[in-house]
């Protein structure tokens, strides 16, 4: 009943095989072997900060520029969602708000929390934090919805003077923000959660 590290071994995170601790590359899949990514948290926070910096202009600048015969309209992410809600499509507006506001913000908070909890040797349930990490990793990509919507609309709605839609600068910063936070989550070494948690014993009896 032990971890690979305690047994003097190193596990390959790519194929789950196990090797002597001195080995540098996995013989089975060729991935680099690292028992624990000691600089993992720094990498996570670096990508996290980059994502957060990009998220600010993503919300301030227009995502979509709609030109019709009579007017030019610039919509930010949140403005666009309210516009949709205004037309009575509440479900779609909710999807946009969840994907572009709720998910990114909760992701920023959750990653920061996970890093802090590992750094401070938190006594919170390791299983709970592992679950939180899995949720973050799963939902992260769904934030790209709004970028894809802009791509679809700006290629499709090109009706000369009647109506045309162009992407705004926010589409770039928002896409970057999503990519950076995905990279941030992926740099996190979840084994650190388990190493430094004090409640390993509880979970073991639970599982036995």
């Amino acid at each position: 009943m032990t971890t690979a590290k305690e047994a003097g071994l190193v596990a390959c995170r790519s194929c789950a095989s196990v090797w002597p601790v001195a080995q540098e590359h996995c013989d089975r899949c060729g991935a680099r072997l690292v028992s624990r990514h000691e600089t993992s948290l720094q990498q996570v926070m670096a990508w996290w900060a980059a994502g957060l910096i990009c998220y600010i202009p993503a919300n301030m600048y227009p995502m979509l520029v709609t030109e019709t015969l009579t007017s030019t309209q610039r919509n930010t992410i949140v403005g666009g969602a309210f516009e949709i809600a205004h037309h009575g499509e509440y479900g779609i507006a909710a999807i946009v708000l969840i994907a572009s506001v709720l998910i990114p913000i909760s992701k920023f908070m959750a990653i920061a929390y996970l890093c802090l909890s590992v750094h401070r040797h938190s006594a919170q349930s390791a299983l709970g934090r592992q679950r939180l990490y899995e949720v973050i990793e799963f939902v992260g990509r769904w934030s790209m919805i709004d970028v894809f919507v802009v791509a679809i609309l700006s290629s499709l709605v090109q009706l000369s003077v009647v109506a045309s839609i162009h992407p705004g600068p926010a589409s770039l910063t928002f896409a970057l923000s999503v990519i950076f936070t995905m990279l941030s989550a992926r740099s996190f070494d979840t084994r650190l959660i388990w190493d430094r948690s004090d409640c390993n014993n509880n979970e073991l009896t639970e599982a036995a």
Binding site: L9, C12, A16, W194, D195
Partner: peptide, 22 residues
């Protein structure tokens, strides 16, 4: 037991990629 583990890194062993349990 740990002795069985420490012998060689055989392909029979599998470690959880997320929590390192062997």
């Amino acid at each position: 037991s740990e002795s069985a583990v420490a012998k060689t890194a055989s392909s029979e062993l599998i470690a959880c990629p997320n929590c390192d349990w062997l």
